[in-house]
Design a binder for these strands. Sequence first.
DNA 1: CAGCTGACAGATTTCAATATTTGTCAGTCA
DNA 2: TGACTGACAAATATTGAAATCTGTCAGCTG
Lengths: 197, 197
Amino acid sequence: MTQPAGVLTEERILEAAEDVLRRYGPAKATVVDVAKALGISHGSVYRHFPNKLALRDAVARRWLARIAEPLDPAGDPDGPAAQRLLRWLQRLAAIKHGMALEDPELFATFCQLTTEAREVAAEHVDHLAAQLTEIVADGVAAGEFVAADPVRAGRAVLHATARFHHPLHAAEWQDPAIQDDLLEVWTLLIQGLGVRP
Amino acid sequence: MTQPAGVLTEERILEAAEDVLRRYGPAKATVVDVAKALGISHGSVYRHFPNKLALRDAVARRWLARIAEPLDPAGDPDGPAAQRLLRWLQRLAAIKHGMALEDPELFATFCQLTTEAREVAAEHVDHLAAQLTEIVADGVAAGEFVAADPVRAGRAVLHATARFHHPLHAAEWQDPAIQDDLLEVWTLLIQGLGVRP
DNA sequence: CAGCTGACAGATTTCAATATTTGTCAGTCA
DNA sequence: TGACTGACAAATATTGAAATCTGTCAGCTG
């Protein structure tokens, strides 16, 4: 429980906080627990974070950044934009669905944390939308897509696929048809109702 | 509290149950309350509904039917399918957003009831998807849309617009930009990324 | 003196006793 | 006879006293 010293950095506090949240869940995790895990008094934690909420927000931010990082379109630059878009959506869905299936309790913790940290979640949404914008813009540059405003189009794609990545819909991910549903929505988005296939 | 007799019909019990749910909320509403409102003993309620859950499901079913009814595409048969689709989506959104804004407590009751009654909610989703399918099929018949399978397309449109009508997203409806977001998604769905405007 | 401790007040949570509710069923009543 | 009652057991919810937690700060320590 008492960890050998080293400097007390925000990083180390976050590490411990994440651990405690994992172990006890969001309802039971206390600042005292975090301090105990670090072998310090809980007062010290307040030297680095103004309050418990800020600490939680910081944990949520790290968590979400870790999700967005491997999705960066720069990591998958080849092929038609339509296909890259599909791969991006499927990867995002796979990450979330994986979390939800493998460790439902941890996922619940994650959900609660992120829905409470509205600001942080909004940043994350912006980040994801920006990644989609990049793909759409590439598609436009390649003459593959027509989009007057790739920024708005990127956001619209994210919104249209909320059911497949928004944690609120986690319960629906149990249904194996969810994969097909995503494909179907993607098809609509790409082709539009007005285009011959 | 004690209502004059008349025959004790399921209809009257549902009426009373809905009233009690409205008044007390889902957490406090008891079968005893419902019986009291009808001036009967709570045992009598169990003569018509096997248990409390079935009673709640029945209330939820009525509630959802009342939402779906005015949306019937047969009530708005004129104009291009794309416009009818937009009107349908906007009407659905307006109904839900209106409930959420005007009487948040009642809406919360409604949400809890429907998320607990998974079966009933699924029926409702099917019902809405069928209405969308109708519009899409009309569009295809008129040569306005191309959709290999209007049933799947209808479902896809409903899924793609979940953010705008699914009660889970109610918190996001506070943002006035939600109207524009819907328009944007609709545009994508109708035009597709691949069509010149 | 910068970084930490630990005692403290007020807010929040826990826990166990107490009360209410659900669902059943033998019996009443018209 | 068939619709209804009301007493009952088991499950669930409420309550309030006790315990814990959050956030502060005066003072310690290296």
